[in-house]
């Protein structure tokens, strides 16, 4: 089972990305500033920490495709009038903790954190700590955490959705679901003649990559192979 991204831009130092679409990876912990309107497709093999800072008025579509091989932390900071749509599409390998921190420091920003995570095999376990903090005295911020885990066989997924609010003027929601394959979907696909393995592979890809825009799909090898 594996994920691959091609044609990636390797970043090795602090960087500011301005309007455009970027495919990145990095070898060490990275600090990234986002300016204007950026789509960022990120493939990470090593599990290094990353800090992303949205400058005022910046819009970020983040597609964080990640094979988790060690515990790591992703920190995102919004300031004023930001729009953040972050998708974390994760394949966990081993026994790991992933921490996602969102700090909303300014006003009038909208953020959604969408997580889809699966384990590679029965012996893998993942603990996701997702914390959104809305700072004191801020106004007009919106935060949605939509976090989903798909259980394969006896693997373990733990997701902790946290929202810490220090202001009265905010709209914040969180949603967590952890479950196995939808039996109706499985029955439907199999009734069309697909084997159990093929049907599950298709559902697995759909679960992980449904959020991925078509124009980014061709940059990423979406084959999730050897599912048993």
């Amino acid at each position: 089972m594996g994920l691959k991204m091609m044609n990636k831009l390797l970043l090795v130092e602090n960087t500011t990305l301005t309007s455009g679409t970027y495919f990145i990876s990095y070898k060490e912990a990275l600090n990234l500033n986002i300016k204007d309107d950026v789509t960022l497709a990120h493939y990470e093999e090593e599990g290094n920490n990353i800090n992303i800072n949205l400058l005022n008025n910046a819009h970020l579509n983040l597609y964080y495709v990640y094979e988790i091989k060690k515990s790591s932390t992703i920190t995102i900071t919004t300031n004023n009038s930001n729009l953040l749509k972050a998708h974390f599409l994760l394949l966990n390998k081993g026994d790991n903790t992933l921490e996602i921190k969102l700090n909303m420091l300014g006003n009038s920003s909208e953020a959604s954190l969408n997580l889809r995570v699966i384990n590679e095999n029965n012996s893998s376990s993942i603990n996701v700590l997702c914390t959104g903090k809305i700072a004191a005295s801020t106004i007009d911020n919106t935060l949605l955490e939509d976090l989903k885990g798909l259980l394969l066989n006896n693997s373990s997924i733990k997701i902790s959705p946290n929202i810490e609010v220090d202001t009265n003027e905010v709209m914040a929601n969180h949603l967590v679901t952890i479950g196995s394959f939808n039996t109706q979907e499985l029955f439907y696909l199999k009734s069309k003649g697909l084997s159990e393995k093929e049907a599950k592979n298709m559902l697995l890809k759909a679960f992980l990559f449904n959020a991925l825009p078509k124009e980014l799909e061709e940059k990423i090898n979406l084959e999730v192979i050897n599912f048993e």
Partner: peptide, 30 residues
């Protein structure tokens, strides 16, 4: 179920299930 589908039986359900993330073309081709 899959073997029965392969025999040439087809079920058109009252409320066909929605599966976001898999296209008709992908399903039919597979």
């Amino acid at each position: 179920v899959a073997s029965i589908g392969k025999l040439g039986l087809f079920l058109l359900a009252q409320n066909p299930v929605e599966i976001p993330g898999i296209t008709n073309a992908e399903l039919i081709r597979s």
